[in-house]
């Protein structure tokens, strides 16, 4: 498929990609333009550096590709890094893009008549069952998680659960669906992630790429 010494960088499809494009431009690491074309069905892309190629995967899957060493480097949100918490993934650098937060939200109309202190269990719909369970476990509340892959807001609106845990950026989606943010779990931003074994066995090449991104970040 590719040369043995190629470094493969996994990038997420979707909204982060346009922000990432600016960073890649500044460090002069230019993937084939079709990477940014939403209609293009290609999944791997060459770049202006013959030793570096890009693959485009779902944002939720970047960490997994990197953890298994299919890509040596990736760009992933800290929410995903936290949710999977792979022992084989390093996340040395924040890229300063894709900023938002992971929060607990609830239906505004339900909030008035409840007392969360009395709860031993709570049903929560989320894409992040692990983070959610840990967050509520710290409060002594057992979570019954409903794992959804999108449109999470609907789950509480249609009374499948009392709470949802999801990314909040401007809060517009919540508002439009009659939800309010109850509590922030963590701040989210995109990070450069690195496969542990690649970092150890190909240190000089990997370190070069890391330092390029690092310099950019300081500017």
């Amino acid at each position: 498929m590719s040369k043995k010494n190629t470094i493969r960088i996994a990038v997420p499809r979707g909204r982060i990609l346009s922000e990432l494009r600016l960073i890649l431009k500044e460090i002069n690491l230019l993937p084939d333009e079709s990477l940014y074309d939403d209609n293009c069905r290609k999944l791997s892309f060459e770049s202006n550096n013959s030793n570096i190629e890009f693959i485009k995967v779902r944002a939720f899957d970047v960490c997994t590709f990197v953890a298994f060493g299919a890509a040596q480097i990736g760009v992933a949100g800290s929410d995903i890094i936290e949710e999977f918490d792979y022992s084989e993934v390093y996340s040395p650098i924040s890229l300063g893009i894709g900023r938002c937060r992971l929060s607990v939200a609830a239906l505004k109309s339900l909030l008035k008549n409840e007392d969360p202190q009395m709860w031993s269990n709570i049903r929560v719909a989320t894409k992040y069952p692990k983070i959610t369970k840990e967050f509520f476990a710290d409060k002594g509340v057992q979570v019954e998680a409903i794992k959804l892959n999108g449109s999470v807001e609907l789950a509480t609106k249609l009374l499948m659960c009392r709470r949802i845990v999801d990314l909040v950026s401007s809060g517009k989606t919540l508002k439009e669906n009659g939800l309010v943010e109850v509590e922030k779990i963590l701040d989210v931003e995109s990070k450069l992630i690195v496969n542990r074994s690649a970092y150890k066995t190909d240190y000089s090449n990997i370190a070069k790429i890391i330092s390029k991104f690092k310099k950019k970040k300081k500017d």
Binding site: K4, G69, E88, S197, K200, T201
Partner: peptide, 11 residues
């Protein structure tokens, strides 16, 4: 010490 080999997942 931990020993790795290039392009091999894990220790």
């Amino acid at each position: 010490y931990t020993i790795f080999a290039k392009n091999i997942r894990g220790e």
